[in-house]
Computed example of a mutant assay.
Amino acid sequence: MTAREVVARQEPEIALAAAEARIAWILDHPHMSGWLKTVLRSTAGCDPIALQNDLDMLRHLIMPRVAAQIEIQVAAASIG
């Protein structure tokens, strides 16, 4: 059983507490990006369904751009 399956079988309150603890760890970590911390703070109190929709949009919009940017950097490094 994977960790994700274990979390999925937990009571929702336990899963929420675990997620909040992970978020708190990120917010307290000095080497995490300011962008990530700002986003995590801004999600407090958001409608979870709207937030899930926004996350899906970000994944569809940002991941292809990031993948292309990485590919360009790798190609440039191999030429250099």
Rank of each mutant, 00 (worst) to 15 (best):
M1K: 08
M1I: 10
T2W: 00
T2S: 15
A3M: 04
A3W: 04
R4K: 08
R4F: 05
R4G: 01
E5F: 00
E5H: 04
V6Y: 13
V6M: 12
V6C: 05
V6I: 15
V7M: 06
Q10N: 02
Q10E: 12
Q10C: 13
Q10D: 01
Q10L: 08
E11A: 09
E11R: 06
E11I: 03
P12N: 02
P12H: 03
P12D: 01
P12T: 01
I14S: 04
I14F: 03
I14P: 00
I14W: 02
A15I: 10
A15M: 08
A15V: 05
L16Y: 07
L16R: 14
L16A: 15
L16G: 04
L16E: 09
E20K: 15
E20L: 14
A21T: 09
I23M: 07
I23A: 05
I23F: 02
I23Q: 08
A24Y: 05
A24N: 13
A24H: 03
W25T: 14
W25E: 13
I26M: 11
I26V: 14
I26C: 05
I26Q: 03
D28L: 15
H29E: 15
P30V: 01
P30S: 04
H31D: 15
M32I: 03
M32Q: 12
S33L: 07
S33G: 13
G34R: 15
G34D: 09
G34M: 11
W35F: 10
W35N: 07
K37R: 11
K37Q: 14
K37G: 00
K37P: 00
T38H: 11
V39M: 06
V39Y: 13
L40T: 05
L40S: 08
R41Q: 07
R41I: 02
S42H: 13
T43C: 13
T43M: 15
T43P: 02
T43Q: 07
A44Q: 08
D47K: 02
D47L: 04
P48N: 00
I49G: 02
I49H: 12
L51D: 00
L51R: 15
L51K: 14
Q52P: 05
N53W: 01
N53G: 09
N53L: 07
D54F: 12
D54C: 14
D54W: 14
L55K: 00
D56M: 13
M57S: 13
M57K: 11
M57T: 13
M57V: 12
M57C: 07
M57F: 06
M57D: 07
L58S: 12
R59G: 10
R59I: 08
H60M: 07
H60T: 04
L61F: 06
I62T: 11
I62K: 03
I62S: 03
M63I: 09
M63F: 10
M63G: 01
M63H: 10
P64G: 01
P64W: 01
R65G: 11
R65M: 08
V66T: 12
V66D: 05
V66C: 04
A68D: 10
A68Y: 10
A68W: 10
Q69S: 05
I70N: 06
E71C: 00
E71M: 06
E71Y: 01
Q73R: 10
Q73N: 10
Q73V: 01
Q73C: 03
V74F: 02
A75K: 04
A75N: 06
A75V: 01
A75T: 09
A75L: 02
A76C: 02
A76W: 00
A77W: 08
A77V: 02
S78H: 06
G80Q: 12
G80K: 12
